[in-house]
């Protein structure tokens, strides 16, 4: 469905020397270098990487806004920047930081205008609109001017606006940015539903790892313009989750020896916090050793936060 081969993009950026307005030096910035990947129909792919890694550049190339310096990009058989008008019929794009709705008028008016922009027939428009209104529960929002919507409500309308013309692919650039927890969950459910019900392929960039955990079966990691990882989130977890945390509550103050392969982080009279290095030992072994020494009341095992894992990953990849 999406085929990207050796995609590169370099920008020439003017570097202004101190005080000199006339003499300009140019510097070439490589935003993307030799990026290749494929996305199949119906997938949800999480596209992650630190700020400035090249995520937006890739999205812009895939949506036909930017022309790459070299490389191939075929989406549903079309090259985005060569057949822009045809290509954009197939895609929907949501930029989390920008609105595509008309600010001062009710949401429904924006939708009606989009109908004419995409030259939709009244019947297919009505069908698509009705479906989106019920899936995203927009009924009460349709007649409210966009500027009066909350960010979460607006994001739901943005997603609807991007899907109105029934595209096969949806690009979401930070769709949950700035949303509160409840709205985030609502947006995630929406994306999941759309993917399941319409079979829309979703490519999602985000900095919120819980978005990825909730949605993406597959992640693409990019750093400094290069592809670093492409595969299932679980594989990545298995590879990079090197420690777990364990909290132990016990009956009375007593001394104990830390089992091999663990480090004590915190200890009070009735509670201890340990990290377990999974390369040296395993959770059951540690628990067994602790039960032998202590009267345990409760044990909590926590995964290392996925954020921390990503930080470790970025560090390892030196990005």
């Amino acid at each position: 469905m999406i085929e990207i081969e050796n995609l590169s993009k370099a920008f020439r950026v003017a570097k202004r020397k101190n005080g000199s307005l006339l003499r300009r030096e140019h510097e070439t910035v490589h935003a993307l270098t030799d990026v290749s990947f494929k996305v199949n129909s119906g997938e949800i792919v999480g596209y992650i990487g630190p700020n400035g890694a090249g995520k937006s550049t890739t999205i812009k190339i895939m949506s036909g806004i930017l022309v790459p310096s070299s490389g191939k990009c075929q989406i549903l058989g079309l090259t985005p920047w060569k057949s822009r008008i045809k290509h954009v019929q197939n895609i929907g794009v949501v930029f989390g930081q920008r609105t595509q709705l008309w600010w001062d008028v009710p949401v429904l008016d924006s939708f009606n205008l989009l109908k004419d922009i995409y030259k939709m027939s009244p019947t297919s428009y009505k069908r698509s609109l009705d479906e989106l209104v019920s899936t995203l529960s927009l009924e009460s929002l349709l007649h409210v001017p966009v500027r009066q919507l909350s960010l979460g409500q607006r994001m739901r309308c943005e997603i609807a606006a991007a899907l109105l013309h029934e595209p096969k692919i949806l690009f979401l650039d930070e769709p949950t940015i700035g949303l509160d927890a409840v709205s985030k969950i609502a947006v995630r459910q929406t994306i999941k539903k759309i993917n399941q019900e319409r079979g829309v392929t979703v490519i999602l960039t985000t900095h919120d790892m819980s978005d990825i955990e909730a949605l993406a079966d597959r992640i693409l990691l990019i750093g400094k313009g290069q592809k670093l990882y492409d595969g299932a989130l679980d594989t990545l977890k298995a590879q990079y989750l090197k420690e777990k945390r364990i909290a132990v509550d016990f009956d009375e103050a007593s001394d104990f020896l830390c089992p091999e392969g663990t480090t004590l982080i915190q200890k009070s009279n009735e509670r201890a916090l340990l990290t377990i290095d999974l390369s040296k030992t395993s959770v059951p072994v540690v628990i067994h050793q602790l039960t032998n020494q202590l009267m345990i009341k409760d044990i909590t095992v926590e995964n290392q936060a996925i954020e921390e894992m990503i930080v470790a990953l970025y560090k390892e990849m030196a990005i």
Binding site: K60, S63, G64, I65, R84, I85, K86, V88, Q89, I91, V93, F95, R98, Q100, I117, Y118, K119
Partner: peptide, 11 residues
């Protein structure tokens, strides 16, 4: 940056 948005429309 809203010009990008215009490039996403088939018009």
């Amino acid at each position: 940056g809203d010009f990008d948005r215009l490039l996403l429309r088939p018009v």
